[in-house]
Simulated assay, not measured.
Amino acid sequence: MKHLFIPAIALLAVSTPALAEQPSVGQTPDTVSAAHARDDGVNMKRLRDDVKARKPRSSRAKGEIPSILPPLPPMTAKAAVPQDWPAYKPVSVLLVRDAYSVPTFISEKNDISDNGASLSYTRNGIANTQTIAGKGAVFYAVSQWIPPAGNDPNVVGLGHYSLVSGVEWDLKTKNNLHQTTGPVSALFGSEFLIASPVIPLSFLKSNIVYTTDASDGRAQIYGAEFAWQPVAPQFRIGTTTRLSRDLDLWLGFYPTLNADYFHVGNSGDFTNLVTGRDYLWIGPKVQADLSFHSGILERYSFFLKYFYLYDALNGGGQNVNYGQVGAKAKLIEWTDPNGDPLGNLSLLLRYTNGTAVRTLQQNNELYAGVTLKFGNVPDPSKRAE
């Protein structure tokens, strides 16, 4: 039986196992064994083990690598995947986060882009000044899983798509709130989960972006961002895997290969950019996180982001080199009627250093404060119940 399961495992996220290999609804190892009891030469122990191996299991409960796609409904040998099954209907969600997510918004990890938007207030009584700083993003995501059409590993297939639009900001106001600085970006993005004979699973992402400065809106920076995110669970790439069963500690590791093209119509407040210049930044963006899924440490998590993008059109003269590391502790959490996380208020400590994407602004900032996260991608398996 081994050779029958290899193609199905390779296309787990976009295709179903061969229907002829699945036992009919209601069959058990005992009934299948009885049906073959009169056949000469049948290895009954192996037959029983093979049937047991086909039974669906919950991988996350056993600490294994979780599936990316929602589980399929029960099917007989003649049944096709129902097009109106709840897990394949479009869903939409409003997301409040700290920034546009490096990983895809729709994946097996429901709390993707874990950090919330932040807001801080400082008053200097001697100088009689006030400062408010805010960093965050609001996005609206529409997503749909595509029913699998077959299990041929030589066919390129689309398993999922999402459309994500929103606004991202990183602002500071000074001098009695009369001066506001920092970038504001409007984005429209798309994501596609692709299966192919060369690379079993990967995500393709693209964004159209317009960025300006909050002070007077003179800056005009517009372009497009493209990213490829591989999914290789056996190497812990592009997914979440358990590191410790005793601590219920999980690692999420999401590297992407990026090509960001921008034209600067007017540099405005972003003095590191050159008006009239085109930029093509190529390189990796990496996001990783450590989180506890149960126990006394469940409210704590750690994260890291690192971007290195080479300035290909200008000989590396203005590269992006950006890093961020931090820790978070949930203070309050809200859930929806199904018990799924809806939002939380968290205590966040983060350190940011380096040149930012799109604006090349220099960062060297330590932030400690409260963040608000709202909205989660619905769990496809729960929608299927």
Rank of each mutant, 00 (worst) to 15 (best):
L187N: 14
Y254G: 01
L342R: 08
P233V: 11
A20K: 07
G317C: 04
G343W: 02
P337A: 11
P66G: 06
T240W: 12
M44P: 04
S301R: 07
T256I: 03
F374C: 01
T122Q: 15
D84L: 12
E365L: 09
R299A: 14
F192N: 11
E21G: 07
F192R: 13
P17F: 15
S15I: 11
T241H: 08
R48W: 01
A186T: 14
K109A: 09
P74V: 14
N115Q: 10
T173H: 06
P29S: 07
F226G: 00
D50T: 02
R383C: 05
D289H: 10
S162E: 13
D311L: 11
T122P: 03
T275F: 03
I9K: 13
L171G: 02
A259P: 14
P103L: 01
R350C: 02
L309F: 00
K45D: 15
Y322R: 01
P153L: 00
T239W: 09
G150H: 06
F270H: 01
F188K: 04
A53K: 08
D50K: 02
R299G: 03
G134R: 10
V14M: 11
Y306R: 13
A18Q: 09
P337Q: 08
N363I: 00
G217Y: 12
N314Q: 15
K373Y: 10
P70T: 14
Q229I: 11
L201T: 15
L251G: 02
L366H: 03
L201V: 13
V102C: 05
I65P: 13
P380H: 07
N175F: 11
E385Y: 06
D170H: 02
H3E: 04
Q144W: 14
L119Y: 06
N363V: 04
G159Y: 04
P73W: 05
S15K: 06
G182I: 02
L360K: 04
L342K: 06
W169L: 03
G125D: 15
P66A: 12
R60P: 03
Q287Y: 10
R242S: 02
D114L: 08
K205H: 11
Q22T: 03
T355P: 01
L94W: 12
I296N: 14
D248P: 01
D248Y: 01
K89R: 15
A37Q: 08
P380C: 08
L297E: 09
P233D: 08
A327Y: 01
L349F: 07
S291R: 14
Y88R: 09
I6L: 10
D50H: 01
L348V: 15
Q361L: 05
I221C: 04
V164E: 10
V155I: 12
P74I: 02
Q362C: 01
P183D: 00
L345G: 00
A99N: 04
A53S: 15
F262A: 06
V93Y: 09
V209L: 09
G326Y: 03
L251W: 12
A186K: 05
Q27K: 00
T104K: 03
P153G: 11
T131E: 12
I126W: 11
V96C: 07
T256H: 02
P380M: 10
S196R: 00
E168A: 10
A18D: 11
